[in-house]
Every structure is written in C-alpha cells, then in structure tokens.
C-alpha cells in the first residue's frame, strides 16, 4: 500500500532521515519505535506532506505522492493523528467531525448552515461521536476534553474523513492509563475495518497488542524491521536505548 524508497529528509545539511526504504502492506498494523530525535515524527510529517523530502520517493498504492500537497494526500486516504493533539480546541466536537466529513463533499454541498445536507452531515458526525462515547459532549468545546477523549476524537475524526491509512503519532501520549484501553479498543476497531495503521509509540508492550511488525529507527535509518518478539529479543534494541555497554 505504502512504499518508501531511499527517503532522505535534511534540515540545513543535517540528515534527519537517511535513506528510509520499506513497504507497508494493505491492512497491516506496524509499530515504529526509536529513541527521541531519531526521526519518527519527521517520517510521518514527510509521508503526510508537512515536510518535503530531500530525495527518494513515497508511493501510495503504486502512485508517487511526494510532490502532492498535504490536503491532496489526505484526500487519497492518508489520515494523520498528531502527537500534540490535532483537534481544534476552540471548536465543538461536532464541528471537529463535520470538518472531516465536509472534505468528502463538494464545496457547494452544505454551504448554507441550515441546509438539509448540513443537517444530514451533523447527524452523521453525531453517529461517529457516539462510537467513542462523546455524543453527549457534541456541542461542547473540544478544549474541555481530557487527553484521552481528545485522542479518541482525533482518531474518530480521521475515520470520518474516510482515511484507509492511519498515521498515529504516539496515540497514548498525555492519555490516562484507563483511557489507554479505550484508545486501544479504537485502534483494534480500525484493524477490524481492515485499515492500514502505522503507530509511533514508546511503549512496546502497548504496540505488541496490535502490531505483527515493528520498525526500529535510529539516527534516521531503519535498524530493525521484524516481529515484536524478535525486535524485543534483539540486542541492538537495548544498544540503541541504553548504549553499547547495556548490550
């Protein structure tokens, strides 16, 4: 589904990603781990078009997308969930989901706030919020939500966008242990819908719940790409996190 070939991203001569090559298959859930500053978020930014790659190619279903704008990539099915919460806090929960739903309709459709189309979209947005237990707060500002609820809203909003590939950047960051279970359930739901999911996460135990494959990044290159069990057992993982003495 997604093929990265020799992807390089440089910031002022500093290669943050240095020749990333891998293929993510349709319906696969892949975890991406690595120490801070190894280029995980930059990789997601590059795939979603927020950062331009210096060289290399990104192909989505066989079509190169590296020259496309972020909104064009989103319309091709790339959904992004941000580490620092990509929700619009000054808007209501309903408006947050409406924004995603409206991207799939023509510009004229639902232009009038009181049109039937807008009401139809509002009902659809409510049904998405019901799926994560947030329908009762539909008309409250998103800023009033807890970290876990914000994360649920962001993921369900990406589902409403119609994305078939999810880039989840640390979905449990800022989320309470109890809400982590709700986030995990939602990710499992995405798997049930045969969505392709890429998860950046520090908690390898959390990743093991969903991923059949884990990619380990260090200093902008892929060091390991294997099953979670094999990655966990590999001495290079400890070396990356704790230095050569630990291995």
């Amino acid at each position: 589904m997604l093929t990265l070939s020799d992807l390089v991203v440089s910031f002022g001569g500093n290669k943050v990603l240095n020749g990333i090559s891998c293929t993510i298959n349709e319906g696969e859930t892949v975890g991406i781990i690595g120490p801070n500053g190894c280029g995980k978020t930059t990789l997601f930014n590059c795939i979603s078009g927020l950062v331009a790659n210096t060289s290399g190619t990104i192909a989505l279903r066989g079509v190169e997308i590296q020259a496309l704008e972020p909104h064009e990539r989103a319309r091709r099915g790339l959904g992004r969930v941000f580490q620092n919460f990509g929700i619009f806090r000054e808007m209501t929960l309903l408006e947050n989901v409406l924004l995603a739903l409206e991207s799939n309709t023509s510009v004229i459709s639902g232009f009038l706030p009181w049109s039937k189309k807008t009401k139809g979209l509002s009902n659809e947005a409510l049904s998405y919020l019901e799926q994560v237990g947030l329908a009762a707060k539909a008309n409250e500002k998103a800023a009033s939500l807890s970290g876990g609820q914000m994360r649920l809203l962001e993921i369900i909003r990406t589902l409403a966008l119609g994305s078939d590939m999810f880039l989840l950047d640390e979905p449990t960051a800022g989320v309470s242990p109890r809400m982590k279970e709700d986030v995990a359930s939602l990710i499992k739901k995405l798997q049930g819908l045969k969505k392709t999911v890429l998860i950046i996460e520090h908690d390898i135990t959390f990743i093991q719940k969903f991923c059949s494959r884990v990619i380990v990044l260090n200093e902008g290159v892929i060091v390991l790409d294997d099953t979670p069990e094999k990655v966990r057992a590999d001495s290079r993982l400890k070396e990356i996190y704790f230095g050569s003495d630990a291995a």
């Binding site: 979603s48 078009g49 927020l50 704008e69 972020p70 909104h71 990539r73 989103a74 319309r75 790339l78 959904g79 992004r80 941000f82 990509g86 929700i87 619009f88 806090r89 000054e90 808007m91 408006e95 409406l98 924004l99 995603a100 409206e102 991207s103 799939n104 909003r157 966008l161």
Partner: peptide
C-alpha cells in the same frame, strides 16, 4: 468553519483535506 480551523492549526486542517 474551515477558516477557523486554519487559524487554529493549519497543519491539522491540511491533513483533513483542506486546501
């Protein structure tokens, strides 16, 4: 609504398919 989204978090709006 889209304009407000852009004002608050442009990158998030772009990844929601907003030009």
């Amino acid at each position: 609504r889209t304009l407000r989204a852009l004002a608050e978090y442009e990158q998030a709006a772009a990844t929601l398919g907003k030009n």
